[in-house]
Design a protein around this nucleic acid. Structure first.
Length: 1046
RNA sequence: GGACGAUUAGCUCAGUUGGCUAGAGCGCCACGUUGACAUCGUGGAGGUCGUUGGUUCAAGUCCAAUAUCGUCCA
């Protein structure tokens, strides 16, 4: 940014590196980001989707935050009290896993070596470091967040909201504790939610085992065969199931296959027919045996579970599929979701065979201490030794894997806290169905509704240390009398207050009293939930022997409160009153259910008001291969690298430019050679993106990537990963900068004054009319989240209208002292408006130009002049009076553009140097010529062409080049210049094209149906167009004849 | 298995309620640099709109199948 007042010193490139920090500081010190409650203004609020403190921001964040800032800046300029609430998320499991791994890698210590307090301390240190980095990245991008309000999902304000909410739901009995089969991450030692589990297809085996039948009767088999992909779970088997009605099951499968066959295409049919035949054969072979097994089950026959010397029943259950395997299925209720359901239906015991660390527990006798994988080998070997292994099949199996640690998930039966979802989910469905909350693009509402529609209870406890610890103190009570006594004791406590503490009794999950007695299980567990951190009550409860729940809450619990917790809830702050509900939520689609739905639920529960009225779901950025970008793949782009190379404005404009409604976007990425003199772009491939060191194919120097680890590799310079897709935007920034530079260079002697409408030239009216259209378009597009449309409108206007025509025309006018003052005023006004429109997308360069414009033309305007605001960020949004919309002027200007284009084309095809002056004439009707007249002078300045005559009777020069279009003919006098061959070639080509077009039109118009059915105006348009084409053809033909005869 | 999206120029993408010769940027070709900009200017080449059927006077656009890719859910 030039600080001198001499416009000559403005550099021809925008120095964004220097400008960005300076401008950002100025915005901050100007207090532009801080929104204070002001009843006189309308609020506009966005809460940031808080980035996880797990690591630095990636390009997806850059996109997400750009879109928010664009909206906030526009609304701010429109006069709204715009608040963008920033903050970060503690991201429970993700962050803890990350820090634990780091400590393990560097110090070789586990979390248990450190202890809870120390580990949490370490994570706080990590958080401080990454939060600073993340917020720094947002600032570099130009985000205008209200930093004074920055929140963290684990800070005191959020903690208060969490405890209040938990207490409220607990009191309403919407939170409960229960035994459930959960996804267990053995590496991290915690439950993970379904959403944190990824299913992978891997090559595995399908083992067939034989379980001996106890005392088989004559005619009954001595063994039952079961098959499994997880042999080790057999140690926890409590039954084997067979279908209660095999015949019915077979017919059902058969009729399904037949139905499918009917619908199937010819290509698919043979395969299905084959399946039906196989089924028939199988039925014939197996039906008898299955029926015997079914009868045995009904008769209460027992099986002997090998290795464990336990007897387990043969039962009937529909989960057993006669069409698969042996038709029998082993049931392990504590370690498989489907078996769990069977176990519940049949009232089977549920034997947990695993410890939290993933080793087998005492229930497995000889297998205790082995990891599941080791146990698998041993179980298979042992069964084989007993002669009970029948067969091993190779097979692709689905394996659930933890997102966070990459270890296989073990289904595990354990006590967890849940939120009951039925009424809560319904409330969140209602507000979307009624349109109170609107999701854009609309198609995402379907997923939102169907997910909520399942109303699955939400498991909220996590066996972690990093997070909000569950505020519940519990104690087991052997019998009811104990419960009553304990409740009385609690209620008698000095600090007890029924408004602040709520009591729940949880009956044992073991419903059989005898078994409870046998296993020494209590009848009840008493839970006390304490609303606010109250040291005295907590101590008194502990004195009574109650122990605080060690688990923490799912990280999404605190995120769900984000729109109101950040505004101070549960305190009734004036901010909450004023800024809530927020206006828009802008986020990515993968967290619609995890986050968006839950915010709606919690907002409604806590405030009886939706958290936001509009949700925009933006696209995802994929790499050139269509894969999602991620650091673990090596195809991730650091927004800071893009900013370094192209500037923050280019990053932002580029991001907005690819935000269309329908599509995810592919962004091919490259390494950039870090050698200053080289900077070659090296396309990323699946191969080179995982290498630690890459060699530049051009300069042969090596550079390191994110994978570099060895001392030697780390010595190499780093090669950033960038994408050339930001070049367009960078060039656009530069174009704007230079057009503005042109303006500054021509503002000497500028005198502000209102513009007299009568003085406006055609091009002035044209640019005003365009400005009106574009500003409308941009405003409407952005308000509908159609960012790409807005960028296109701005790009085309700024480049094609403003720079290529308006500024070019002004060059001529600036040369004339009489016309200069007016030209200056209109240019200053147009630039002023353009800057405002571009500011939300490209805040830095527009602010830099604004500052210069203020230096040379602080007072400006159209109908009246006034002093412009010091900062563009605080300027008002563009509102052009509709009176300037002028279609006639746009048509008139288009004629000028056509003539100019024709001249350039002739020049190009005749190979005439740009500076070579030419003379030309136009033959056309009066009206046309009249409309060209005011701009006739610009043909000289813009095409070095002099208009020598114009009118209906103009004679063609003896030797000429011709272009006929739009009902006129343009003749360029080429005496002594002409390249006849080029001219003939060109004319013939045009003739060919015209003949083709005319043929098409004639055919269309001779079609009786078209003429009679199509709207009259469409038919007329076709007729006019045909007439014009024919006219043009006649002119081209006569020109050709002339060359032929000469 | 279900839901949703995509398929248009070599590449990345636009294309409103069906209606003039389907657009842009990059890349490519030709020409051009002594005052806004070579991160530029001027001109040009390049597309049977995935495939097949249907509706219509008229289909890139609507409908139905189908193929391929992607995302989410099971």
């Amino acid at each position: 940014m030039a600080t001198t007042s001499d416009p000559q010193d403005i550099p021809s490139r925008f120095d964004f590196e220097t400008a960005q920090n300076k401008i950002y500081d100025a915005w901050q010190s100007g207090g532009w980001f801080h929104a204070v409650v002001d009843p006189k203004k309308k609020p506009y609020t966005i809460v940031i989707p808080p980035p996880n403190v797990t690591g630095a921001l990636h390009l997806g964040h850059a996109l997400n935050n750009t879109l928010q800032d664009v909206m906030i800046r526009m609304k701010r300029m429109q006069g709204f009290n715009a608040l963008w609430m920033p903050g970060t998320d503690h991201a429970g499991i993700a962050t803890q896993a990350r820090v634990e791994k780091r400590i393990k890698d560097i110090e070789g210590k586990s979390r248990h070596d450190l202890g809870r307090e120390e580990l949490v301390n370490r994570i706080w240190q990590w958080k401080e470091q990454y939060e600073e980095r993340i917020l720094g990245q947002l600032k570099q991008m130009g985000c205008s967040c209200d930093w004074e309000r920055t929140r963290f999902t684990l800070d005191d304000t959020c903690a208060k909201a969490v405890r209040k909410t938990f207490f409220d739901l607990f009191q309403k009995s919407l939170i409960y504790r229960g035994k459930r089969l959960v996804n267990w991450d053995t590496h991290l030692g915690t439950t993970v939610s379904d959403d944190e589990v990824e299913n992978k297809t891997v090559n595995g085996h399908f083992w067939h085992f034989m379980y001996p039948v106890v005392d088989p009767k004559p005619g009954e088999p001595h063994h039952v065969t079961v098959a499994t992909t997880r042999p080790e779970t057999m140690l926890g088997d409590t039954a084997v199931a067979v279908h209660p009605d095999p015949a019915a099951a077979f017919s059902k499968v058969e009729s399904e296959l037949k139905a499918k066959l009917k619908k199937a295409s010819a290509a698919e049919q043979p395969a299905i027919t084959e399946q039906i035949e196989a089924l028939d054969q199988r039925r014939a072979e197996m039906m008898g045996a299955l029926e015997i097994l079914r009868d045995m089950a009904n008769d209460g026959r027992m099986l002997s579970l090998p290795l464990m010397n336990r007897e387990i029943p043969l039962i009937t259950d529909v989960w057993a599929k006669p069409e698969l395997g042996s038709g029998c299925v082993k049931i392990t209720p504590a370690h498989d979701p489907n078996d769990y359901e069977v176990g519940k239906r049949a009232g089977l015991p549920m034997i947990n065979i695993m410890s939290p660390d993933g080793t087998l527990n005492a229930a497995t006798e000889g297998y205790q201490g082995l990891f599941m994988k080791q146990a698998r080998t041993k179980v298979v070997d042992d069964l084989e030794a007993l002669g009970l292994l029948k067969e091993v099949e190779e097979r692709a199996i689905e394996m659930p894997v933890s997102d966070r640690s990459g270890t296989p998930i073990e289904p595990y039966l354990t006590d967890q806290w849940f939120i009951k979802m039925d009424t809560l989910a319904q409330s969140a469905m209602d507000v979307v169905e009624s349109g109170e909350v609107q999701i854009t693009p609309e198609r995402y509402t379907k997923g939102y509704l169907s997910w909520l529609g399942e109303k699955r209870d939400w498991p909220i406890s996590r066996q972690l240390w990093w997070g909000h610890q569950i505020p519940v103190w519990s104690k087991a009570c052997t019998v009811q009398a104990d419960v009553d006594q304990l409740v009385a004791e609690i209620e008698a406590l000095k600090s007890f207050d029924s408004a602040l503490a709520s009591i729940q009794t949880e009956p044992s999950s073991e419903t059989d009293p005898e078994k409870r007695a046998q296993l020494g299980l209590p009848d009840f567990t008493l839970h006390v939930c304490v609303q606010d951190a109250s040291e005295s009550l907590e101590q008194e409860l502990q004195a009574l022997g109650l122990i605080r729940e060690e688990d923490v809450l799912d990280t999404w619990f605190s995120s769900a409160l984000w729109p109101h917790s950040t505004l101070g809830w549960p305190e009734q702050t004036e901010e909450l009153d004023y800024f809530y509900p927020t206006s828009a939520l802008i986020t990515s689609r993968d967290i619609i259910t995890l986050w968006v739905a839950r915010m709606v639920i919690m907002g409604l529960n806590n405030l009886n008001q939706v958290p936001f009225t509009s949700v925009f779901i933006h696209p995802k950025i994929l790499d050139g291969n269509g894969e999602t970008m991620s650091k673990s793949k090596g195809n991730g782009i650091d927004p800071l690298d893009v900013i370094d190379k192209f500037g923050a404005d280019a990053l932002r404009f580029g991001m907005a430019n690819l935000t269309t409604e329908t599509q995810d976007v592919r962004m091919p990425v490259q390494f950039e050679c870090p050698v200053q003199s080289c900077q070659t772009s090296i396309p990323q491939t699946v191969k080179n993106r995982v290498q630690a060191v890459v060699e530049c194919p051009k300069c042969k120097n090596k550079f390191r990537t994110q994978w570099a680890e060895t001392e030697a590799d780390l010595q190499l310079p780093r090669g950033p990963v960038i994408s050339e897709r930001f070049e367009v935007a960078r060039n656009f920034v530069n174009k704007l900068w230079n057009a503005s530079r042109f303006a500054m260079l021509n503002l000497e002697g500028y005198q502000p004054a209102a513009i007299n409408e009568a003085d406006l030239t055609v091009e002035d009216r044209w640019i005003l009319s365009r400005l009106f259209t574009v500003s409308q378009n941009v405003t409407q597009s952005l308000e509908g989240y159609r960012y790409a449309e807005a960028t296109r409108a701005l790009y085309n206007f700024a480049w094609d209208n403003f720079c290529s025509f308006f500024v070019e025309i002004l060059k001529d006018r600036f040369a004339d002292p009489a016309r200069r003052p007016h030209a200056q005023r209109i240019l200053v006004f147009a630039l002023d408006q353009l800057l405002r429109l571009l500011h939300p997308m490209m805040p830095f360069v527009t602010e830099a130009i604004w500052e210069q414009l203020n230096r040379f033309a602080k007072v400006r305007g159209l109908d009246s002049v006034e002093e412009a605001s010091d900062c563009l960020i605080g300027a008002s949004w563009v509102e052009i009076d509709e009176k300037w919309a002028n279609p006639e002027i746009e048509t008139q200007f288009a004629r000028f553009q056509t003539v100019l284009g024709s001249l350039r084309e002739i020049r190009s095809r005749q190979n005439l140097p740009p500076k070579k002056d030419i003379k030309f004439s136009i033959r056309g009707d009066e009206d046309y010529c009249e409309s060209i007249k005011p701009m006739a002078g610009y043909f000289s300045s813009m095409a070095s062409a002099e208009l020598i005559s114009m009118g209906p009777q103009v004679e063609a020069p003896e030797i000429n080049a011709l272009i006929a279009q739009g009902g006129i003919e343009i003749f360029v006098d080429l005496a002594g210049l002409i390249d006849v061959d080029a001219e003939i070639k060109r004319l013939e080509k045009e003739k060919l094209k015209l003949v083709g077009n005319i043929g098409g039109k004639e055919k269309k118009l001779s079609n009786e149906k078209f003429v009679s059915s199509a709207p009259a105006e469409i038919v007329q348009r076709e007729r006019d167009s045909l007439e014009q084409l024919e006219e043009r053809l006649a002119k081209v033909e006569s020109a050709l004849e002339k060359f032929a005869s000469s």
